Simulated scan of single mutants.
Amino acid sequence: MSNFLAFEVTQTGNMFSRGVVRKEHQKLQNNHVEIRIHFSAINYKDALAATKNGGVIQDYPKIPGIDLAGEIVASKDENWPVGQQVLVTGYGLGVSVDGGFSQYQQVPTDWLVAIPEAFSTKDVMLLGTAGVTAALAVRSLEETNIAKEAPIVVTGASGGVGSISLALLHSLGYSNVIALSRKAELSDWLTHLGATSVLSPEQFFPEKIKPLGKQTIAGLIDTVGGEQLGNLLPQISYGGRALLCGNAGGIQLKTTVLPFILRGIQLIGIDSVAIDADTRKEIWQFLAENQAILSQLHYQEVLLTDLDETIESLLEGTHQGRTLVNMEVK
Score class of each variant (00 low, 15 high):
251 I>R: 13
279 T>M: 11
96 S>C: 06
85 Q>I: 10
60 Y>P: 10
135 A>S: 11
71 E>M: 12
227 E>W: 06
263 R>A: 12
39 F>H: 08
215 Q>N: 10
281 K>G: 11
281 K>D: 14
100 G>N: 05
133 T>I: 07
250 G>K: 02
266 Q>C: 05
48 L>V: 05
142 E>W: 03
87 L>N: 02
274 A>R: 15
240 G>P: 02
11 Q>T: 06
286 F>R: 05
249 G>S: 10
124 V>Q: 03
230 G>R: 03
2 S>E: 13
59 D>P: 01
160 G>F: 04
204 F>E: 09
242 A>N: 05
293 I>V: 12
253 L>P: 00
171 S>E: 15
301 E>Y: 05
94 G>C: 10
206 P>D: 03
4 F>C: 03
8 E>A: 10
116 P>N: 03
188 D>H: 10
17 S>D: 14
327 M>C: 09
299 Y>S: 14
91 Y>V: 08
320 Q>W: 08
299 Y>L: 06
234 P>I: 06
54 G>T: 11
99 G>A: 08
74 A>R: 13
167 A>P: 00
213 G>T: 01
202 E>F: 05
251 I>P: 08
64 P>K: 02
56 V>R: 09
76 K>R: 15
9 V>W: 02
105 Q>K: 13
241 R>I: 12
299 Y>V: 07
237 S>E: 14
294 L>V: 04
3 N>L: 11
108 P>D: 08
275 I>M: 06
127 L>V: 05
101 F>D: 04
139 R>M: 11
69 A>W: 03
304 L>E: 04
273 V>E: 11
63 I>D: 03
209 I>K: 12
73 V>C: 12
22 R>A: 15
80 W>R: 10
85 Q>P: 02
163 S>N: 10
189 W>C: 01
98 D>C: 04
296 Q>K: 15
177 V>N: 00
232 L>C: 00
267 L>T: 07
190 L>V: 03
300 Q>I: 13
29 Q>E: 15
311 I>T: 08
125 M>S: 00
25 H>I: 08
247 N>L: 15
111 W>A: 04
238 Y>K: 13
20 V>C: 08
281 K>Q: 14
25 H>E: 13
152 I>A: 00
44 Y>S: 04
328 E>R: 12
251 I>V: 14
21 V>D: 06
148 K>P: 02
222 D>E: 05
17 S>N: 14
75 S>D: 02
298 H>E: 14
208 K>V: 13
136 L>N: 01
96 S>A: 14
68 L>S: 03
236 I>G: 03
28 L>A: 06
109 T>R: 11
184 A>G: 07
263 R>M: 09
205 F>D: 03
